[in-house]
Design a protein around this nucleic acid. Structure first.
Lengths: 109, 109
DNA sequence: AGAACACTTTACCATTTGGTTAAGTATATC
DNA sequence: GATATACTTAACCAAATGGTAAAGTGTTCT
């Protein structure tokens, strides 16, 4: 089972709970992008994008780096993989227990 | 690919972004529980639990039903499975693209 | 009928979100 | 050196969260 603190999960799920942030993640699948390049597609001001990036960065999904006057944003594969594994494990556990429960209910109506 | 609207994902991820709500989900793995039985384990008042249940219910993860004076809460397997599938698909896509990207970067340093 | 139970609703509170505009800072470019 | 770029910061705002206490409603028990 992957180590993933409760707090990490809070931040992770919260980061993914906003459509603009999920779009940012999708946009970063092609590779790193400048912060300014992320704003135009969404009808948001730069400060708004910065806040979303900060939340994504705080969750560990995105990492940023400033080179010159440009801040580049990229996905952090490790954290993404951690998230994927936790989700796979947890949902498998859920479905397993639910399957056991429904079997039990079938046999003991 | 599973159909799962953007709005559903917002609600779903948001519902999972709170530790108390995840604990409620875990508690419901054993089967249905009365609303009042969910409050004591967490140091929360009943109205607080009700709000969390409302959010979980709105996300489709939990369904509730009132029998007599008791409101029973249970997990909604279908929605859970939808969520699991979406997460599996999406994270697979992420890792695939990231793998392709890292291969590309290896070949074009 | 009257009391006990299990929520529900209402009203309230501090904090966080998600967004804005406007002014400030650091880095390139001419 | 002056100017344009590309963020940053600050200040502000409406709405949503996550919680509380207290009063209200509908069921069940005796």
């Amino acid at each position: 089972m992957v180590k993933c603190s409760e707090d990490n999960l809070d931040k992770l799920f919260f980061a993914l709970s906003d459509p603009n942030r999920r779009h940012v993640v999708t946009a970063l699948l092609d590779g790193e992008k400048a912060l300014g390049d992320l704003a135009p597609p969404f009808k948001m001001t730069i400060p708004a994008v910065m806040k979303h990036i900060a939340i994504l960065e705080n969750s560990g999904i995105v990492r940023t780096e400033k080179r010159g006057r440009v801040r580049y944003c990229r996905l952090e594969p490790d954290q993404l993989e951690l998230a994927r594994e936790w989700l796979a494990d947890t949902t498998r556990m859920w479905t397993d227990r639910l399957r056991a429960l429904s079997l039990y209910l079938e046999e003991n109506p």
